[in-house]
């Protein structure tokens, strides 16, 4: 049944092209078809031959990504940082950077922004063409990265099974909310967040002002999902409880599993926040409540130290700019200006 159907359509197609190819109609009785092109239209197309232009070349950057070794992880970072093994200043990106490193997967980082991503989120990973399968998309978005990493390795790091979900919930809720306040709504926004996310992308002051406003508005709206008013004390109290619990989990894991060298996704996520909070000296933050809380817990400080060395990660360039000067905020500002070419 199906074969006759396809031959039928093929017949139609050939008669159709025949009619197109030759200017005369009704050559053979078979050539007549309902789909034949009417003569006046056909004359127009005879006069204006349809032309297909060759496809544009891919942008240079993509070429570079394709030819480089390993997979390419697109993250938030300063453009000049991308080639080195510098940490992203965005914890969601740094988390995957740390996790892929802990799984010994070869990759390099590419500085990008969320406009480059298909789902407007960073990070995403472009699989090295030599390992990609022709039947799969070679772009792995953030929520598929864990599965993808497992497929590459066929093993999953040790987790305290029952505890994974609730402790991950602490990181995804309590810690993330406090981080959002700390970075976007406290004075740290001016010193750290705006230069990292916005000033590195544009020099136009109008765009900078509107983008800052939008970024802060988005953060505020996100925090207001859980309560109509932002209770700052409550946010930090929750973060304190969460860090206490995570500190305790690490202690227990050390007691139960002798070898703590294979960090899990939970630890990579925890590390991403700790690294960004602890790498900058306390007095450099304009609002240092959250790093102060994190510093209270020895296991957390220890984890940050161990994993930092293990991964060989350096803090984002903006940290150097902020720590370089010892004196006033004015000085750190001038260094920032130099770093990001702000006038």
């Amino acid at each position: 049944m199906p074969s006759s159907a396809t031959s039928n359509t093929n017949g139609h197609a050939t008669s159709h092209t025949k009619a197109l190819a030759k200017p005369t109609v009704n050559q053979t009785p078979n050539a007549w078809s309902f789909f034949a092109v009417p003569r006046p239209i056909k004359r127009i197309f005879d006069r204006f031959p349809l032309l297909t232009y060759p496809a544009n070349r891919l942008p240079e950057r993509v070429q570079r990504v394709k030819s480089a070794d390993g997979h390419a992880l697109f993250i938030w970072c300063a453009p000049e940082d991308a080639s080195e093994n510098r940490a992203s200043f965005n914890p969601a990106c740094l988390r995957w950077q740390a996790f892929l490193k802990s799984q010994n997967l070869q990759f390099h980082t590419v500085s990008s922004s969320n406009h480059a991503s298909t789902n407007e989120r960073l990070p995403f990973l472009v699989v090295n063409p030599s390992c990609s399968s022709p039947f799969k998309s070679n772009i792995v978005s953030a929520h598929e990265l864990a599965k993808w990493a497992v497929d590459q390795k066929d093993s999953w790091p040790v987790e305290l099974e029952l505890h994974y979900e609730p402790y991950m919930s602490l990181l995804n809720n309590e810690i993330r909310r406090a981080w959002q306040y700390h970075m976007y709504l406290s004075p740290n926004f001016e010193a750290f967040t705006a230069p990292s996310y916005i000033h590195s992308q544009t020099n136009s002051s109008v765009v900078r002002i509107t983008s800052s406003w939008e970024l802060q508005k988005a953060a505020r709206e996100d925090l207001m999902k859980s309560s109509p008013r932002i209770d700052v004390e409550g946010l930090y109290a929750s973060a304190d409880r969460a860090f206490f619990a995570l500190d305790n989990l690490l202690k227990r894991k050390r007691r139960m599993v002798a070898d703590v060298s294979a960090p899990s996704l939970l630890e990579a996520t925890l590390f991403s926040y700790l690294f960004l909070l602890l790498e900058l000296p306390l007095d450099r933050w304009l609002d240092n409540r959250l790093p102060e809380i994190a510093r209270k817990y020895p296991e957390l400080v220890e984890l940050e130290n161990t994993l930092k060395k293990q991964y060989g990660l350096q803090p984002p360039a903006i940290y150097d700019a902020l720590t370089g000067t010892k004196d006033s905020t004015l000085n750190s500002r001038t260094r920032l200006e130099k770093h990001f070419g702000i006038r």
Binding site: H163, S169, L170
Partner: peptide
Amino acid sequence: NEDELADCTAWSSHVLTL
């Protein structure tokens, strides 16, 4: 004890969120 307190905090976050 501390372990139970930590678990209580984490599970409370699970219940509240989901």
